[in-house]
C-alpha cells in the first residue's frame, strides 16, 4: 500500500514538473499556428514594412520592432551606469549598517508593479519631458526613461548579487597591498564577477524588451519610425496591449499573434543567452 502511494506521489510530481515544459512548447505552437495566416500573407515584408493600416488590411511591424529596440536601447543606456554604480555602492562602499536597508529598498522598488511605474510616468514624467524637450511629452524618449527607471532596481540587485560572489579573501589581499576601493573594484571585483555582471545586464535587457505596462501609458501607439524621439511611437508590447481587444479581422489577429511570437522569440533568446552563457557558472557553484 505505501509503495503504491509512494509511486503515485513520485509520478504526480514528475507529471506536474513536465507540465512546465509542455506549457512552454504549447505557447510557441499556438502562437506559431495563429500567426500562419499573417506569415503567408506578408512573408518577410511583415518585419520590413512599417505601414500598419488595419482598415486596409495591411500590416507591417517594422515600426513596432524598431520601437522596441530603440526604447530598450535608451533604457539600457540610461540604466546600466546607474545600476552598476548602485551595485558597487551596495557591495563595496556602503557601511555595513547601510547595506541592508538600502539593498532592501532597491529590492522593494523592483517589486512595485510596472503598471504603477506607467501611471506615475504618465502623470508626473510626461509633463517634465514635454517642458524640457518639447513635443507632447508622450513618445519614445519618455518611454525609454520610464523603462530605465523601472528596470534599474532589478538590474542593480542582480548585478550586486554577481559582485557579491567575489571572495572576501581576494579583496582583502588587494586592500592589504594598499589598493583603494576603486582599485579593488576595478582590478578584483569586476574581473572576478565579469560574467555575472554581463549576465545580469543582459537578463535585465530581456525583461525590459518585453515590458508592457510601464511603456504603454507613455508611448502613444503610433506606427511610425521617426528619429525625433519626442514623437509618439510604438513597440511590440504597446501594440499588443492597445490593439488586441480592438482587432476585428482574422488577418489583424494573426498579425498581432505574429508580433507576440516575434517578441517571445526575441526575449526567449536574450534571456537564454544571459542564463546559459553568463549565469550558468553561478548555479553550479
Amino acid at each position: 500500500m505505501t509503495k503504491i502511494i509512494d509511486n503515485i506521489f513520485a509520478n504526480s510530481t514528475r507529471l506536474i514538473a513536465i507540465t512546465v515544459l509542455f506549457i512552454t512548447a504549447w505557447i510557441f505552437t499556438v502562437l506559431f499556428q495563429e500567426s500562419l495566416l499573417s506569415m503567408q500573407t506578408f512573408g518577410i515584408d511583415f518585419v520590413t514594412e512599417s505601414k500598419w493600416a488595419p482598415n486596409l488590411e495591411k500590416f507591417g511591424a517594422f515600426a513596432a520592432i524598431m520601437g522596441s529596440v530603440i526604447s530598450t536601447f535608451l533604457a539600457m543606456v540610461l540604466a546600466v551606469p546607474v545600476a552598476i554604480g548602485v551595485a558597487i555602492f551596495l557591495s563595496e562602499i556602503a557601511h555595513e549598517k547601510l547595506k541592508a536597508p538600502v539593498g532592501v529598498s532597491i529590492e522593494l522598488l523592483a517589486a512595485i508593479p510596472s503598471v504603477i511605474y506607467g501611471m506615475w510616468g504618465l502623470f508626473y514624467f510626461v509633463p517634465i519631458v514635454r517642458d524640457l524637450f518639447g513635443g507632447i511629452g508622450i513618445g519614445m524618449l519618455t518611454a525609454g526613461i520610464v523603462l530605465a527607471i523601472m528596470i534599474l532596481p532589478f538590474m542593480a540587485a542582480v548585478t550586486r548579487d554577481a559582485m557579491n560572489t567575489t571572495p572576501d579573501i581576494l579583496k582583502e589581499s588587494a586592500y592589504a597591498l594598499g589598493g583603494t576601493k576603486w582599485d579593488v573594484v576595478r582590478d578584483i571585483v569586476i574581473p572576478y564577477s565579469k560574467a555575472g555582471i554581463i549576465g545580469a545586464l543582459i537578463l535585465a535587457l530581456g525583461r525590459a524588451i518585453g515590458e508592457t505596462m510601464a511603456v504603454t501609458f507613455v508611448m502613444g501607439n503610433v506606427h511610425k519610425v521617426s528619429w525625433d524621439l519626442t514623437k509618439p511611437a510604438t513597440s511590440i508590447p504597446v501594440t499588443l496591449a492597445n490593439e488586441f481587444t480592438e482587432a476585428d479581422t482574422d488577418l489583424y489577429f494573426s498579425s498581432l499573434f505574429e508580433l507576440a511570437l516575434i517578441l517571445l522569440v526575441i526575449s526567449f533568446t536574450i534571456i537564454s543567452v544571459a542564463k546559459f552563457y553568463f549565469l550558468r557558472r553561478k548555479r553550479r557553484s
Binding site: 515544459l21 504549447w26 499556438v30 518585453g210 508590447p237 499573434f257 546559459f276
Partner: peptide, 21 residues
Amino acid sequence: DISDIMMSAPSIVVGSFVYAI
C-alpha cells in the same frame, strides 16, 4: 532552465496565448 526563462518572459505573450486557447 525553462522555468528560469519563463519567469522573465514577457507576460503579455502569456495573455495572447490564453486568448487563443
